[in-house]
Design a protein around this nucleic acid. Structure first.
Lengths: 144, 144
DNA sequence: ATAATAAAAGACTATTTTATCTTTTATTAT
DNA sequence: ATAATAAAAGATAAAATAGTCTTTTATTAT
């Protein structure tokens, strides 16, 4: 479904936002990697990409690290997914055909489209903030 | 979503079944690759896997090639997907967590599960035969 | 000013997936 | 029997993805 990079991205963003609201201090790569259970150096690379795209913010030096503001928390999951994996999942053909739409559909286009639309709707209506809140409540988890 | 191998597999199976019912003769790798627009040699490898798993049948020698019987046509898409990509898509966590279920869910488990279930239902209720019939009707396509 | 800190950037390695090419085996028509 | 045919099998190669390690740059507290 999503690439590993995208999976780590979503987990990281949720974690960073949760930490950003519950404490003033920023989070280091090490802290993030430990808590979302991802390879540290690879995570560092991913955080750079997210930072460049303003999905998260970063600060160098002592007391530096990654953080997010309220506006960034209002972002939805679709934006994160598109920033990392692109929109192929939502626009491309499930069977990989170069041409496939309502006019010239692949054999499973009709059945697949409503599912793809539901996925799109789910991702676009789910904010990072809402997920971080659920994480805070202790009803959902990012590791184990 | 699906691997390239899986995309080619589904396209191939639909094409082979369509040809198997509309003519008595078997289909060669070349014929298949041309018509589903896939790399010929790679397709040959995939057909071997499908054949070993009895998703399709094959015969060597002159007049040989690939074919499917009615029983194989009654197979659903989920079986093909699972044979090639495994069931990770339907059992694993969207965020890649090693542990994620109703009891200990990841932050988007609740939202994702119904979509995954719909996907599962769609694939398991769609037979190769039904897709080949649609293809025959000229309302859906495997190339272009 | 300087040392310490932490991300950014760059180079590199490993693994998996996708794809190609060659040889072997089985089958069939002549 | 033999030649032709077509899949099976095996060996490589290329590309994409995932992951690691080292050096540089920016920042801040001392």
């Amino acid at each position: 479904m999503f690439s590993k990079t995208c999976e780590y991205s979503i987990r990281a963003v949720i974690y960073i936002y949760k930490k950003s609201v519950e404490s003033e201090c920023k989070v280091s790569v090490k802290d993030i990697a430990t808590n979302i259970q991802s390879p540290e150096h690879f995570t560092a690379k991913i955080l750079q990409i997210l930072s460049r795209q303003d999905i998260i913010s970063s600060a160098k030096g002592p007391n530096g690290g990654f953080f997010m503001d309220v506006h960034q928390g209002e972002m939805n999951l679709l934006e994160v997914v598109k920033a990392i994996d692109g929109s192929r999942l939502f626009t491309g053909c499930v069977l990989g055909l170069s041409k496939c739409d309502d006019k010239v559909p692949c054999p499973i286009h009709a059945q697949y489209k409503p599912i793809r639309d539901k996925m799109n709707l789910m991702l676009s209506s789910t904010t990072i903030e809402s997920l971080a809140t659920k994480l805070d409540s202790g009803l959902v988890f990012l590791s184990k």
